[in-house]
Write a protein that binds this DNA or RNA. Structure first.
Lengths: 359, 359
DNA sequence: GCGCTTTCCGTAAGCGTTTGCGTAGACTAC
DNA sequence: GTAGTCTACGCAAACGCTTACGGAAAGCGC
């Protein structure tokens, strides 16, 4: 090889194949207007030279980027890494690549990332983080995304956002109701809720579900202590500490996501409080490790990977006049972190109740 | 607003600010040759119009892509999502976006993804998955990446690869030695190893470390049962089942990564085998949940997030003549899944030894 | 005030594609 | 053999930006 200075260009391929650039382009794109013989030859030459089209030139000239953008709060969070896995999976199938950005649960950062993605002219953008209860926080993002859609971009969101776009809606409210109902059925009445930031719709919806489940038992959300902290493991831990300090008589703790529940369990363990004999713990998401915790975490499964797949699939469909909505399912997964409410106040020993097992 | 048809272009900003395109470009890029007054005005106008440069046009014209590529085996794996988090973190700081691809532990898929990334002319490419013990498997990837580097691209790998590029080298061998040494110190001699696919250098290196630790005790790898399965939770579970069936007298199980250890623990739990009283379990990585398992997992911490940060930082430095290498540290984290070897054969009761705690 | 340098800004040439349009040549139909 | 229709291909104009290069205005010393 004499001088592989830079990557071969379409012009190089065309020259080597003794055709014009236009013909080479059409041949490689499989577009009509080129005889099969010539087309085959061009492809052959291109292959030999290891030619790969410059995506930027192609995009600039009007082609598709073959890139989709994905905005998550934090990829290290298993909830989002499972969603991302789904997105990347279907992207790969379709020959697309995925750009991932962190929003860090900050509306301003989210806007910035969306702008960046738009600047990259991705074919589609998927916003996977939770929405914000205050529409104003996403007003600007919405304007930007709307403009993006008007100029041909596709958008899908996961969760309840104030963004006009196709949406995959996790069963947040039903999940909240399911987890609370489960605890109530087990006889718990003194239930504490450890929630994430109130500005997140995911938190608001799950909380609302809890409230709905409370109603038939003559309770409302005002009757149960709710503490808002970070939507993370450490947030869960600090929330549990606060709740335990302020309300020592609680028999069950609901964390609004698994990560928080992990933090809760760790606090309980370090204090020597038996789960579920003294305090039951349950949450929502069913991340991969939930089954392997100590004890196995009772939680409500949301199909994260599938949600990611669904979102990209929706975004890639030809746009429809109306916004599409797709609700996910949910399933209560009972493991070992929940059990019957202890009788009386904090029995020191083991409760005699039957221990529910995984189903 | 009359007609926000498409995104505003640089020309629009320039016109609105009554300057030439060149001046506008320079002003926004912060390049010299523009008076501060004019520059400020241009920026002001651009901000008002919500102008965002078209990355593709910019790249074509010779600018940087402001995109980096990241190849991981599977983003759903916490090992990789933590690395990705590190990469995205420093990328965001520098105004870069990250394209993530799955290689799925398949050299051919990896090559394909690298090709795609190169087609996107990313400024840098980071290969984070394990390398392969057979250099032939990565020969083509190496050729492609070398060409990429010659044309100005930057490359960094995480792990031991047969790729000529800057590298972040996890302490795989020392980590393997550390975990084995820990078990040996506790008196274990009948140790089983649950390894991932033998073709991965990560597996080979960790295994070699185990072997090295064995030597002072008059043992070699041939003396301990080693089973190769998938480098996943389920792989760990099936490996544990096989080992337990073939060698019922083992007192300790080493899994070559935390994910496998999680599978191992689940098998042990479902069989009612007490950990660590009957069998100790230890592994390598220290993913975020390791501390929250049942029991807390003794493992060797590798700084995944930091590795991701380091890799991108290296890749972004001006290229040096020689390949840079950076070794990570490692730290044995003793939790509750390891304890003294039971005396005699499988005592049913609890071992009386002192329980090591986290340090 | 005259040459000089310096500062600031505009003109225009690409970057590598895609694609509308124009034009040869081959073929059909008479 | 001539006119008309396709087919297969080439020419050249975008796409939106960066960056030499050149020219005008402004500052300097004398």
């Amino acid at each position: 090889m004499p001088k592989p200075r830079s990557a071969p260009r379409l012009a190089d391929v065309a020259a080597r194949a003794s055709v014009s650039i236009a013909t080479a382009s059409r041949a490689l794109a499989g577009r009509a207007g080129v005889s099969e013989a010539v087309a085959a030859h061009v492809r052959e030459v291109a292959m030999q030279m290891g030619y790969v089209a410059n995506v930027h030139a192609r995009t600039l000239a009007g082609g598709a980027t073959s890139t989709v953008g994905l905005v998550v709060h934090e990829i290290g969070d298993p909830y989002f890494s499972e969603i991302a896995s789904g997105v990347i999976g279907v992207a790969a199938q379709r020959g697309l690549t995925v750009q991932i950005c962190h929003s860090g649960r900050d509306p301003e950062a989210e806007l910035h990332q969306i702008r960046t993605l738009i600047a990259h002219r991705t074919d589609a953008i998927i916003v996977a983080g939770s929405g914000y209860t205050d529409p104003a926080l996403q007003a600007e993002s919405n304007a930007v995304l709307t403009a993006f859609q008007q100029s041909g971009g596709r958008v899908a969101v996961i969760g309840r956002h104030h963004l006009s776009a196709d949406a995959v809606r996790p069963d947040n409210e039903p999940a909240g109701a399911a987890v609370a109902a489960h605890l109530l059925e087990l006889g718990h009445r003194r239930i504490g809720v450890i929630a994430g930031p109130a500005i997140l719709t995911t938190v608001a919806d799950r909380l609302a579900g809890v409230g709905r489940a409370l109603a038939p038992h003559g309770l409302t959300l005002d009757d149960v202590p709710v503490v808002h902290t970070d939507f993370t493991r450490n947030g869960g831990a600090s929330g549990a500490e606060k709740l335990l300090a302020d309300h020592p008589d609680l028999t069950a703790l609901v964390a609004l996501n698994d990560l928080m529940a992990i933090g809760v369990l760790s606090v309980l363990r370090s204090r020597g409080i038996a789960v579920p004999q003294q305090v039951s713990v349950a949450s929502i998401d069913d991340v991969a490790v939930a089954a392997d915790l100590a004890p196995g975490l009772t939680t409500v499964r949301l199909p994260m990977t599938e949600m990611g797949e669904l979102a990209l699939t929706m975004a890639l469909k030809p746009p429809s006049a109306r916004r599409r909505r797709k609700n996910t399912g949910h399933e209560l997964i009972v493991r070992d972190s929940t059990g019957p409410a202890p009788r009386g106040r904090r029995p020191a020993g083991t409760s005699a109740g039957s221990k529910p097992s995984s189903r």
